[in-house]
């Protein structure tokens, strides 16, 4: 019977092990997470103390009884939009520049671009913390040398910008390398034909470059939106979510609820479920647009 099933669906032989593994690794934990999110479980409790509280944890989140939740949603989305946009634009420009140029510096630029991608984010975050230090950081030192006013990078007004800056540093190269590969693989004859027909630079970009790069642009965008939505390591070491709640992204809010200082695992789980729903909604929307017109 099993044999016949595999005869009928030969692909199952190949994908079954991976699919089974994925189910175990994600389906069960997700169900488990749902269950925890409906309890009042706290870290270190005996199981005897755990009570079922229904949707109370969710109601608490959305009704404003968790004052930082809406802020976390807001700044997570804001962060997602800002960093993705900046990284896509800068990344694309760098990629284009690299593709057009025949400079001998190209291999060096490539090598440099790889460094931020492979650097351990938790360590990179700390280096940024040192560089941005208001008193002995190199960035303020340079500002002082240039007779510019010093900036307290990690205070309430600037912390968000600092995290954005560090994220742009780490992930623009990723987009740049993708765009480079994409732009360079564009067929040149189309451009020549269009130029002969009198198309200007903008038209060329709009009607040739953009459509042919569409899949890649969406690919980069999906990765950047989702990864920036779930960002954790970098702000965790850089700002710990503070000052105030100015950099408390959803992941950090979950951490703050769940870590030993608070240990409110039940509430954190409800928050985690919401983060999962937001990120799958965003990727659903993006993939929908990616597939449309293709």
């Amino acid at each position: 019977m099993i044999k016949r099933y595999f005869k009928k669906k030969p692909y199952m032989t190949y994908i079954a092990p991976a699919m089974a593994l994925m189910t175990v690794l994600t389906l069960f934990p997700t169900i488990f997470l749902w269950l925890i999110s409906m309890t009042n479980y706290q870290l270190g409790w005996d199981l005897g103390r755990v009570k079922f509280v229904g949707l109370d944890n969710y109601i608490r989140l959305v009704s404003g009884r968790d004052p930082d939740f809406w802020n976390a949603v807001y700044i997570s989305l804001k962060f997602m939009v800002i960093t993705t946009a900046a990284e896509m634009i800068f990344g694309f420009l760098i990629g284009k520049l690299l593709c057009d140029s025949e400079s001998r510096m190209k291999p060096i630029v490539f090598a440099v671009l790889i460094i931020p991608i492979v650097m351990t984010p938790s360590i990179a975050g700390n280096i940024w913390k040192l560089m941005l230090n208001a008193e002995y950081g190199i960035v303020n030192y340079f500002l002082a040398v240039l007779h510019l006013p010093r900036v307290t990078w990690l205070d309430a007004d600037m912390a968000f910008t600092s995290v954005v800056l560090a994220d742009i540093w780490q992930w623009t190269p990723f987009v740049a390398l993708i765009s480079y590969a994409g732009v360079c693989s564009l067929p040149t004859d189309q451009y020549e034909a269009a130029r002969i027909d009198g198309g200007n630079a903008f038209q060329l970009f709009r009607y040739i470059t953009l459509p042919s790069l569409r899949p890649l642009i969406f690919l980069a965008m999906i990765f950047r939106t989702i990864d920036s939505l779930k960002i954790y390591d970098m702000p965790f070491v850089l700002t710990q979510g503070g000052p105030g709640n100015s950099t408390e992204f959803l992941s950090l809010h979950i951490y703050r609820l769940a870590n030993a200082q608070n240990g409110l695992i039940g509430r954190a789980a409800a928050n985690a479920i919401i983060l999962m729903m937001i990120s799958s909604a965003v990727s659903k929307v993006l993939t929908y647009f990616q597939r449309k017109e293709m």
Binding site: A156, P243, G244, N245, Q261, N262
Partner: peptide, 19 residues
């Protein structure tokens, strides 16, 4: 007590930020 202090510390910090 630690959970309470965390709550107090968050609001205190927000007051400091002028919120």
């Amino acid at each position: 007590i630690n959970q309470m202090l965390d709550i107090m510390g968050s609001y205190g910090s927000r007051a400091q930020a002028g919120e």
